[in-house]
């Protein structure tokens, strides 16, 4: 089984590598094709956010268990400026950059669990999980 792995997010190419590795583990966990697609899409959004809004970060990718269920957990972390108003950042269409403002709100919908911890000035940690059905 694939061990937990941490990948850097320091450039555009890393976002592609994150997508590819997340896909591989999603298959291994036994997620359906639609759920694989949702997880990889959320991973792409959150990795790009770490790069664009925080100047880079990393993601920890691991398989988790809850009784007999297997899941895939991704923890994105960065030491960027943080998110001062989390509710606002989670609002569909809200962007401080020139994005569509769908990354955070969309990722929350695409995943089963979504946790955002951010300290202005210290950085952001976003942990998302998808459980195999």
């Amino acid at each position: 089984m694939t061990q937990p792995r941490e990948l850097p997010i320091a450039g555009n190419g890393d976002v592609v590598l994150v997508r590819q590795h997340v896909r591989k583990v999603a298959v291994e966990v036994g997620l359906s094709l639609v759920d694989q697609t949702k997880v990889v899409t959320a991973a792409s959004e959150l990795a790009r956010n770490a790069l664009v809004h925080a100047g880079g970060g990393r993601v920890r990718i691991e398989i988790v268990h809850n009784g007999v269920r297997q899941g895939l957990r991704l923890a994105f972390s960065d030491e960027g400026p943080g998110i001062p108003d989390v509710q606002q950042a989670l609002t569909e269409g809200w962007s401080t950059g020139n994005g569509l403002g769908l990354g955070l709100s969309g990722s929350r919908r695409l995943m089963d669990e979504f946790e955002l911890v951010s300290e202005p000035g210290e950085g952001t940690v976003i942990t998302v999980t998808k459980w195999a059905r």
Binding site: L33, V34, Q36, T37, K38, T41, E45, E92, L100, L102, S105, G106, R109, L110
Partner: peptide
Amino acid sequence: RPAVAITLVELGL
């Protein structure tokens, strides 16, 4: 792909 269409709608696009 169907999975892409489903995901896009849920993403809000």
